[in-house]
Write a protein that binds this DNA or RNA. Sequence first.
DNA 1: TTCGTTTGTGTAATCGTTTGCACAACAATA
DNA 2: TATTGTTGTGCAAACGATTACACAAACGAA
Lengths: 332, 332
Amino acid sequence: MSGTNRRRITSKELAKLAGVSSATISRAFSPDSRIGSATRDRILAVAREYGYQPNAIARSLNNQRSRLVALVVNAIGNPCEAEEQQLLVHRLQARQLLPILLCCADHSDRLQLMRLASTYQVDHVVIFSDMVSMQDAVDIFHTTRPIIVSFEPLENEDVSNVRIDGSVGAGEIIDKIVGDGKRRFAYLAGTKSSWIDKLRRKWFADALARHGLAFEAEAFGDYSYDSGFKEAVLLLHRSKVDAIICGNDVMAIGARDAARRVLGKNTPEDIAIVGQDGIAMAGWDCNDLTTLSLDHAAFMDAVVEVIERHEAGDEGPHSITLTCTPRWGSTA
Amino acid sequence: MSGTNRRRITSKELAKLAGVSSATISRAFSPDSRIGSATRDRILAVAREYGYQPNAIARSLNNQRSRLVALVVNAIGNPCEAEEQQLLVHRLQARQLLPILLCCADHSDRLQLMRLASTYQVDHVVIFSDMVSMQDAVDIFHTTRPIIVSFEPLENEDVSNVRIDGSVGAGEIIDKIVGDGKRRFAYLAGTKSSWIDKLRRKWFADALARHGLAFEAEAFGDYSYDSGFKEAVLLLHRSKVDAIICGNDVMAIGARDAARRVLGKNTPEDIAIVGQDGIAMAGWDCNDLTTLSLDHAAFMDAVVEVIERHEAGDEGPHSITLTCTPRWGSTA
DNA sequence: TTCGTTTGTGTAATCGTTTGCACAACAATA
DNA sequence: TATTGTTGTGCAAACGATTACACAAACGAA
């Protein structure tokens, strides 16, 4: 009930109250273990009365399984990651797995943070952040069943991963824009160091190459609206591009606003602007962005699929590849 | 190094390797404990060599302190919560506290979820969600140092909390809009059942009352853009309001788009639209929303302040109140 | 009746730390 | 030299569960 007692009751104490041994208490809470159903019912009743719940920390120590999952992300504030995390957290919760969030943005010491999480004996690790090297992650979590990485830089490691391939979708988008008469492309990257971003850029660069074109200008932001706005202004002042491919949707919205407000250019007539991610906001009436979109639900299904295989004892490595598709808006 | 050994080395094993007892290993990792500095250095060196880190699960069991913090939120996808969570997670990480995320949206069984988290002996709980009753939270986490609730329905409980008061700011916004000649107000609520939303509505209703006005129409959404859009359309079709106060910024953006696109009404001339939260997106050039804004950083500072007092052993209850201020845009 | 099997329960070891207590070595003091 | 203090270390008992093993009771079959 609304007990205000500070201390939690232990299985040994409950055992005394129910007139059994603590082993029997434990069995009452394990779905398939040899125990009389009368005993179980009685124990569960007494447990409810005294608010007893088995201590997960103690259980984890004994089991060698914590049912904790470390989620290594860049920034929750980024809508794309937020949408994905939301979906993943729900899927984990449905499986009685609890997510521990590690946020790598800003100047936190990422390695130390991962080391800290690893001391909690997490059962799984999902790396979304491209700010940590895969090798560091593998080293630090060497004891955890091999980690899952969300993107894949090369086919180098024997690490389970979920890979995103947008090359085909990027091709379709470039075809359309070139078909509309645009020839002078710029790439507005998420970050300078991100390998994810380098891969994504390559999808579009390859598609351009098939038309005998290449990026005329480059700029680097930080995945934020403000950086998209600011870099687009600079870009459009120093070169005469008529199409900008952006590292994500939020930057694309920033770039669109910059083009419209500062340069007086409209999409798609004066300039084509393309985002990446396919976040919900891109589809809002006020944005209506053309974007290379990923099915986030399918993405997270894939992540969970790998986790479940690991749970089942099949350590893989497993690899699942997903593709991105264009979502057409009025900006390109 | 890049060891691929599955099992983690224990303090007892390391003790053998270093020629000491496991107690000494433990002391080497405790900042202020009686241990010779030569011994400590040697142990730390050997530990690094074999990749030893103390097992936090075992430590938690012994210490009765897990350094885990449960964050009970509605939805990470909601930008306002995402921004706040981001700030909070950083502050926690800086204190070597790890956040466990409980996401209450959708149809997950919130109570069971909280019970699950409570078995992990979390040191603190922060309730952001208004989908769980405070009483449930207090009951389930009765063993944890009293929980922190982000808003406060009434002065009813002896629970530490951080309270948001927007009454003054809401008054300023209403004054401005009434001064601009608007008289017919609607409230587009976040949800029907949320007590947070009821409080927020009251701030504006009280301000209207001072002008001898009241809300002429009401509608209920779910804090999403789509619900803001849809409900605004219905609202504007069935009543002749010239000002809409929305439950959050995202719905306000949806309402603004609906007014513009479906009804052909512009802000602020034809209709005033006001948001709440003060998320970054509200300030984007394409939105430029007038909103009752909260300083999220100060908010999270306050949450951490309470956590730190609890950590220091002062269980309070503590209460901190923050106020909201208008952020003027072009929609009102 | 007697033996083998099934069922339900208790005993005790284990998971990997931390920490109170005891004690040896050594330094400082009288 | 004998007497205190101070340091550094080990021993062993927690912390709160789970589970292999042992065993008694109940049951069916011969």
